[in-house]
Computed example of a mutant assay.
Amino acid sequence: MTARKNESWDDFWTRVNGAGTETIRGVEVQVPTDVPLAMEQRLKALEDSESEDDIREMVGLLFGADVLGQWTENGMGLMEFKTVLAWGMAHAGGAKVTFQEAYDIVLAEEASEGKAPNRAQRRAASNSRSASTGGRSRRTSSASTGSARRTSLA
């Protein structure tokens, strides 16, 4: 790509990233094209926070101030919110995913959370291989690992 004479940084960056807008629940938002540095820093600080103010701040950094309030007023549900966040973060990270792909990501993550392991997974876990040889571990007899039986003094 050749540089254009007298092109401003903003014009250059818009051209490189193909910035645009999307209407989500009646609110026009910029399509994220990068993760804001402030968001990167705040995510580490707020890693375990569930505060509504903190969530509002993160959404504001990604999509714009008070977008979360407008989406809430317009009836956005939790699954919609998770899908929009997945879509926005993917775009901010450079992956041009569709809303359907973002929704599929959210569904896959929710399915993997809290799902009990199936029978095959339990069997695989119980038949672990030895770390040093890669072979199956052998059960150690209780005679070699057990403690001597003690009698009560009472």
Score class of each variant (00 low, 15 high):
residue 20 G to D: 08
residue 24 I to K: 01
residue 69 G to S: 13
residue 13 W to R: 07
residue 30 Q to T: 12
residue 28 E to Q: 10
residue 82 K to A: 14
residue 63 F to S: 06
residue 34 D to H: 14
residue 87 W to I: 04
residue 83 T to M: 03
residue 83 T to S: 07
residue 26 G to W: 06
residue 57 E to R: 09
residue 34 D to C: 11
residue 91 H to R: 08
residue 56 R to Q: 05
residue 76 M to D: 01
residue 42 R to W: 11
residue 68 L to G: 05
residue 12 F to N: 02
residue 57 E to W: 14
residue 35 V to P: 05
residue 47 E to F: 09
residue 68 L to Q: 03
residue 26 G to Y: 07
residue 73 E to Y: 06
residue 39 M to H: 04
residue 85 L to F: 10
residue 65 A to P: 09
residue 22 E to N: 05
residue 88 G to D: 05
residue 39 M to V: 09
residue 71 W to Y: 09
residue 24 I to M: 04
residue 45 A to N: 09
residue 52 E to L: 14
residue 62 L to R: 08
residue 86 A to C: 03
residue 29 V to Q: 00
residue 92 A to K: 08
residue 35 V to Y: 14
residue 92 A to Y: 07
residue 29 V to T: 09
residue 37 L to I: 08
residue 33 T to S: 12
residue 40 E to S: 13
residue 29 V to R: 00
residue 13 W to K: 04
residue 41 Q to F: 10
residue 70 Q to A: 14
residue 71 W to H: 10
residue 76 M to A: 15
residue 48 D to I: 10
residue 61 L to D: 13
residue 44 K to V: 14
residue 91 H to Y: 01
residue 75 G to E: 04
residue 66 D to I: 07
residue 23 T to D: 02
residue 22 E to T: 09
residue 29 V to L: 03
residue 62 L to I: 13
residue 62 L to T: 11
residue 58 M to K: 01
residue 53 D to T: 13
residue 29 V to N: 03
residue 13 W to A: 03
residue 51 S to G: 01
residue 85 L to E: 02
residue 83 T to L: 02
residue 45 A to D: 13
residue 85 L to K: 01
residue 47 E to Y: 11
residue 37 L to A: 07
residue 31 V to W: 04
residue 50 E to N: 08
residue 18 G to D: 02
residue 59 V to Q: 02
residue 51 S to N: 12
residue 31 V to I: 15
residue 16 V to L: 13
residue 36 P to Y: 06
residue 54 D to N: 12
residue 88 G to Y: 07
residue 86 A to Q: 02
residue 91 H to W: 08
residue 78 L to C: 01
residue 81 F to A: 12
residue 24 I to E: 00
residue 55 I to A: 11
residue 25 R to L: 15
residue 24 I to G: 00
residue 93 G to L: 04
residue 71 W to G: 12
residue 66 D to S: 15
residue 19 A to N: 06
residue 90 A to Y: 00
residue 16 V to R: 09
residue 62 L to K: 09
residue 21 T to D: 07
residue 62 L to Q: 07
residue 23 T to K: 07
residue 25 R to G: 00
residue 61 L to S: 04
residue 92 A to G: 15
residue 50 E to D: 09
residue 16 V to A: 05
residue 65 A to Y: 06
residue 47 E to P: 00
residue 11 D to F: 01
residue 39 M to D: 06
residue 44 K to T: 13
residue 20 G to F: 02
residue 82 K to G: 09
residue 16 V to M: 11
residue 11 D to V: 12
residue 11 D to E: 15
residue 65 A to M: 05
residue 19 A to Q: 13
residue 36 P to F: 05
residue 50 E to A: 06
residue 41 Q to S: 10
residue 46 L to N: 11
residue 30 Q to K: 14
residue 67 V to I: 15
residue 19 A to F: 07
residue 60 G to P: 10
